[in-house]
Design a protein around this nucleic acid. Sequence first.
RNA 1: UGGGGUGUCGUCAAGUGGUAAGACACGGGCCUUUGGAGCCCGCAUUCGGAGGUUCGAAUCCUCCCACCCCAGCCA
Length: 565
Amino acid sequence: MNEKESKSPSNFIRSIIEEDLRTGRWEGRVHTRFPPEPNGFLHIGHAKSICLNFGIAADYNGLCNLRFDDTNPLKEEQTYIDAIMEDVRWLGFDWGDRLYYASDYFEQLYEYALKLIRDGKAYVDDLSAEQIRQYRGTLKEPGRESPYRNRSVEENLDLFERMRAGEFEEGSKVLRARIDMAAPNLNLRDPVMYRVLYATHPRTGDRWCIYPTYDFTHGQSDSIEGITHSLCTLEFEDHRPLYDWFLDNLEIYHPRQIEFARLNLTRTVMSKRKLLRLVEEGHVSGWDDPRMPTLSGLRRRGYTPESIRNFCERIGISKKDSTVDIAFLEHCVREDLNRRAPRVMAVLRPLRVVLENYPEDRVEELEAVNNPEDEAMGTRKVPFSKVLYIERDDFMEEPPKKFYRLAPGREVRLRYAYYVKCNDVIKDENTGQVVELRCTYDPETRGGWAPDGRKVKATLHWVSARHALSAEVRLYDHLFASDHPEEAADGTDFGSVLNPDSLETLTDCKLEPSLESAKPGDRLQFERLGYFCVDPLDSRPGRLVFNRTVTLRDTWAKIRKAGKK
RNA sequence: UGGGGUGUCGUCAAGUGGUAAGACACGGGCCUUUGGAGCCCGCAUUCGGAGGUUCGAAUCCUCCCACCCCAGCCA
């Protein structure tokens, strides 16, 4: 346990649990749950909660349930249920045989409601939604009691049973808890427990036409499952008195609700409503667009589950509203991929290079290291020949001070190959664009070392033209240009805050031939460029498509940017 | 005086009366066949503010200030 403790940073929830363990509050048990509503896809904010709940269960020898909070058939769908399970599994967590649905408890919940009615603690109200709102009062003024508040137990029982039987129209009646219309906490002003909804539920079909609200469902579901610590986000803090009230008045097992701050990330939005809008308004290709902060989007982008878990572990848990710099998430994938991703050479924006002194038909197989961080990953052979492609960005006709790549008259190293020197620049007659470089290579420098000890300032990646594979590469960047789009996007059009360059598609990229066998989902480092993965959906043999997960740290880009200021 | 929360480095975040961890970001250096990776150094005399208690306070008390959440038959 000590190792695990040092791995998971201390936080106030763990302190509470350790205190509970010390005092024997739950007979030494720790039992959590992850309770998503199946009305959308999981995002990195959910990952924080998943890692918290499953992580705590694992560290304290406890259990964590997966429970769908499916009490609103108007918004919930089976496709979301399926996607959520896939995402939780992909993240690396296992709920064993403890897959539950709040809808499994509908009958029990109904019984609970009956008890409250019998005890005079719940009543059927005929007020309309609009009237209930008016009767609720305001933040500063108390509410008024409904004229139906004092119906007899018998009448309430009869009405509630008939609500279930489908005798009343949608919206015509609700079941309410009889608490206190003058409570300063609005949640206690006779909250609605049941509403009439003639909707088909993804799991219970048309068996029910009354559905319990979140407040009347969540705590009791926790209770039924024997949850010890019910972890949720800050906005439910005001609901805790109600959570406690139902459990106390039902006189059933009473878990402890603890609230923590949800995750916000710079340059992205996290609310399901806004994510849905991005999808519906076509700003992205879907919930799994690689620019989305959804788990399916991050997966398609090439993020590893390990890096996301590590990120969630390291951002910590607190009650403070906070926004984590997305650079930290990116740091976490780089760190992981640096150790695991095989290196490979790919030229994204090809510039033709002809080695004038290299024999026409000669081909050499040069040895390249697969991962300098892991010798066990071995080496491979890369073909080299007279005509090559290098990156357009690696050549400048008039290089500025700190640019030390290729330029006229300059010598650089081609990785794992030879030193080459640029003699001539060939341009398009009409456009003036550089179309080809005429270079010479030094046969003495095979492998990249000069026997005379002569040094070279840059090493470039390259691909042999004759052997090159063509591919499409999608360069992804932050979806939003602003650090805090959540605020900017409120009420306005996304247009003003979206990053117009969040996706750049390159269709004529050149790859070394070893990539022939790349499989969907494979993650690689394109040397000097970044980490890329084979798109799981669009890539096919002979028509490869890669997604850029994240760039490498780019010192040159930083120098360039600083120079422009 | 509606109620409930939160305020420690640019951003996260430890710290629970004994004299401010760590990470990211940023800046500088070393090293380098990825301007990658790695390594080293720097980066809060101060904890929203003001008082007070104490030998000693980010931690306790008082007052103040700022920000977030709540008036769905959403969760």
